[in-house]
Amino acid sequence: MTDIAAVYEGADPIPGDFYDLLKPRVMSLVVFTALAGALLAPGTLHPLLILLSITAIAVGAGASGALNMVFDADIDAVMSRTRTRPLPSGRVSRDAALGFGILLSAGSVMVLAFASNYVAAGLLAFTIFFYVVIYTLVLKRRTPQNIVIGGAAGALPPVVGWAAVTGDVTLVPLVMFGIIFLWTPAHFWALAILKRDDYALAGVPMLPCVASATSTRRQILLYAVLTAVAGPSLTLIGAASWAYAVVASALGVWFVVRAVALLNATEDTERRNAGRLFGVSIVYLFALFGALMADHVIAMVLA
């Protein structure tokens, strides 16, 4: 048991402890991108059912986070960024967190099946499985490409949101999936540079821990460029206007410029540039999907 856990030993968990298991900051991104998928989807769904569907997707993502914390509790206890989470701090027991995650996983999938359709529910179940089993249990401790492959789970919410309305999957949600999938490595590796020592201490082979600084920065730049190219592609397939393409291109250039700055950083400025890239990556994705939704709403009003 860690020193932090000793402070909480014997304490009863409070609702806020279980809320922290859901990784609420990650949930906010899931809700935002799933909403974009649902909004752009052709067809109609009652507003209450849309609300239930998005809530189920968010809860499913939170359940994934809780189960991830169960299986990564030993890693979280070592890393300064995560050692105050509910399990390593002793605020929530492993069994309680496991039961909580399983209950929410099953409940979210059933609610989504009820509120929308079995296609969306199946996609949500697959998302949870992929994040918990493929990423957390299989990839994370074995390969520096863990976040590249595992990033598929975080890229699926707009596909699930689309399927909740339409009951199928077409090119548009797959392109949205591709944008997030390509965005994830640059975003996460920038954070991993900042937390390189933590990951090394925990024995997690994140790319900045096992590759040279030059190799890591080049791969970050590669994914930033691919993300910047993918962003405006929604216009090319007819899912957005040219105004959106301009905004997406500008955001992409900003993302790439920060990646170039990291590539050219010295040892003394690496952390500062990695921190800036990490911050820009978050703004990029929220702004991109925000612009996409605004573009769709404006088009509907003007139609």
Rank of each mutant, 00 (worst) to 15 (best):
Y135Q: 00
V119E: 14
A97Y: 08
V78G: 05
G60K: 05
L103H: 06
I75G: 03
G107H: 09
Y118S: 15
L112T: 10
L67N: 03
G101T: 11
F130G: 09
A77K: 06
I128G: 00
V132E: 02
A115T: 02
P88S: 01
L123Q: 12
R91N: 01
N68E: 10
V111Y: 00
N117P: 14
S108G: 12
F126G: 08
I102D: 12
A113D: 02
R94V: 15
A106I: 15
G90L: 06
A115K: 00
S93L: 06
Y135H: 01
R83Q: 14
A97P: 13
A66I: 13
A77H: 04
R83N: 13
S89V: 04
R83A: 09
V111D: 00
T136M: 03
A120W: 02
I75C: 00
L98N: 08
V132G: 07
L67C: 11
L98K: 12
R85A: 06
L103Y: 09
A73I: 05
A96D: 15
G60D: 11
S108A: 13
L98M: 14
A77V: 11
L112P: 01
G122Y: 06
M69R: 08
L104G: 09
R81D: 08
R94N: 09
L87P: 11
T136R: 02
L139H: 03
R85F: 03
A121T: 03
L124Y: 03
S89E: 01
